[in-house]
Design a protein around this nucleic acid. Structure first.
Lengths: 134, 134
DNA sequence: CGGCATCCCACTGGATACTG
DNA sequence: CAGTATCCAGTGGGATGCCG
C-alpha cells in the first residue's frame, strides 16, 4: 500500500498554516500524547494524572491540559467539593485521536527491537569518533 | 473500539527505556517525520530534500538524516561522481512507519477544522486575559 | 486539591562560514 | 554537491513558592 501524502512541496504550500506541522508540533510536546493516552481508559483527576506521569512537572501538566481543552480534545469539569476536585476526560474528538495513535504506538513496540539492533550496529561500524584520547 | 495501551503506570515502568517515549521524542523532532514523508515517494538526494523542506537548516538536515540512518529507517549511498552525489531512501523498516504516520496525518487533516473551531470558541469564551491595557 | 506566577537553566535548532 | 564546525538566540520545560 502506498499512502499518498499531499503536503508541502506540491506546489501550493504555506509553511505556517500546515495542519501536518501543527499536529506534529503537538505530538512533539513531550506530554500531550501521553496525557491523551492516559485519559484513554476514562476520566481522571488532576493529581491522578500527575501520578500516572511520574516525571511531569506541575506547570506542564496544567499547561498541556489547557491546550488540549482549547483544541477540544478533552473536557474539564470542576466539582465544588471541599477540597475541590476537577475531572478531565476525552471528548469524542479526543477519543478519535486514539486510533491513529494506537497504530503508532503499536508500530513503535513492534519495531523497537529492530531499531535497537540497527542502532548498535551503526554505532559499532562507522563512527569511531569517540575513544580518541585527548 | 478500545485500544488498550499498556505503557507506564501499569506497575513495571522505567521512564527512560520506554519505546513509546522514544518514538514520541523522535516525532517531535520537528524534522524527522517530515523527512520520512518526503522520502515516501522514492529516493532523494541531499539538496533535493533541502528544497522539499523550504525552511530546514543545513545542520538539521544532516543530523536528522544521520539519526534516521542510525535507527535503520533509511539507507544512504554515495556516488563518487564529480561533484559527488548522495542518495537517501527508506528501508523496509522506514517504509513500515509510513502507514501509522499516514493514519495520523489523515486524522490531522480531517479534524483540523474542528480543532480550529474549538480553539476560537475557547478563546472567545473564557480567557479574557489579553486586552488589559498596561 | 488544583492550580498560577516567577525564575532560570539546558538544550534545540538557526545562521554563517569553511572543507573534501 | 554534500556535508562539518562554530557560534548564538529562543524557548521548552523543571523547580519552587504562593493562592483560592
Amino acid at each position: 500500500m502506498k499512502a499518498s501524502f499531499v503536503l508541502w512541496s506540491r506546489g501550493d504550500f504555506d509553511v505556517e498554516r500546515c495542519p501536518v506541522r501543527e499536529i506534529l508540533s503537538h505530538l512533539g510536546d513531550k506530554w500531550t500524547t501521553l496525557i491523551v493516552i492516559a485519559l484513554a481508559e476514562g476520566p481522571h483527576r488532576f493529581n491522578e494524572l500527575r501520578r500516572a506521569l511520574p516525571d511531569i512537572s506541575n506547570r506542564m501538566l496544567t499547561q498541556t491540559l489547557r491546550d488540549l481543552q482549547r483544541d477540544g480534545l478533552l473536557s474539564r469539569q470542576v466539582f465544588p467539593t471541599k477540597p475541590p476536585s476537577v475531572e478531565y476526560w476525552l471528548t469524542p474528538l479526543g477519543r478519535s485521536r486514539l486510533d491513529p495513535l494506537a497504530a503508532l504506538v503499536t508500530w513503535a513496540q513492534n519495531t523497537h527491537a529492530d531499531v535497537k539492533t540497527a542502532r548498535s550496529k551503526f554505532d559499532r561500524s562507522g563512527s569511531v569518533i569517540a575513544n580518541v584520547d585527548s
